[in-house]
Design a binder for these strands. Sequence first.
DNA 1: TACAACCAGTTGCAATTTGCAAGCAGTCTG
DNA 2: CAGACTGCTTGCAAATTGCAACTGGTTGTA
Lengths: 170, 170
Amino acid sequence: MTEPERSGCPINLTLEVVGDKWSLLVIRDMMFGNRRHFRELLTKSDEGISSNILADRLKRLLEQGIITREDDPSHKQKGIYSLTEQGIELLPILAQMSAWGYKYLPVTEELGIRARLLSEGGPKMWAEFMDELREAHVGVKRRKKTGPSVGERLQAAYQKVMAKKASNRI
Amino acid sequence: MTEPERSGCPINLTLEVVGDKWSLLVIRDMMFGNRRHFRELLTKSDEGISSNILADRLKRLLEQGIITREDDPSHKQKGIYSLTEQGIELLPILAQMSAWGYKYLPVTEELGIRARLLSEGGPKMWAEFMDELREAHVGVKRRKKTGPSVGERLQAAYQKVMAKKASNRI
DNA sequence: TACAACCAGTTGCAATTTGCAAGCAGTCTG
DNA sequence: CAGACTGCTTGCAAATTGCAACTGGTTGTA
């Protein structure tokens, strides 16, 4: 069950936990896409993860303490997945990956806009977003709430680009 | 040759380039361990990469423009691998992974010390280290050189912990 | 109360990727 | 000229991935 670690290097250990092609995408969707149910993660992902892989990754992330699962009171079969503090703190890794990909890889416009805002916002914006995630996932109330949240701002920017694209296509 | 991308999301694209269990470890060894030759990367890595995997990863990193390869003038068969600017800018991702692993995973003392220093040093220290890497890999001279370099400081801290461990074992 | 749609997964199987060990041709060293 | 060293390559078994179909249950609707 517990496979032996290759080394005690922090980078290696992190890679052993989230160093595959899907785990961080699942976490990304939970963070930026508000996906909390199995079906949402399965069908609303841009990359099209298959159900067995998703089930396996969720199980591993659960075992690692990166997410939790609880029953949805509104539906007996639904489970709600939440990020733990440990999971929320993966955000800086995702933010850095996002910035690097935005700079060097062929990112589409609509998916790049979030990367740009997040990069321009810097660690301060990340911290604010992590506070919002703590509120949504761990139930920790945050203090100051002035203006739209980071999540809302990212979403609004994405919608705006999508709307522009749609109008161009007509 | 060019496999189709799953999506134009920057995080996904980054994961398609370095989102496997070995690529970032190779880059880590080039950055923090001064490994520049095939054999060095093969034998001096804590995790024990096998030669076919290493050859494949180096090839892919070359194709992606993250590293370059040139002949070693001192030995006709030796190649020297260098990080490109694009490769050097992976450092913040490694630094964040290092910090996360240090915080949440069972990191050994001697391998954790670098993580701690790098985390405490923050983005400013990362930028300084990246400048040192630019000098060593891309040949860009850096300006101010006051005191020991970040690379030297990390190495010295590591040696110190190792020395302590050795003396304890006697 | 029947029925379709939806829920979280599981199962079977083929294709790909990984990991180990051995091997290889050329190069340098004593 | 022998032996060690160079950057890889090859063969093969084991593990992982990905697709598609399927399961057993729940929920909303007529």
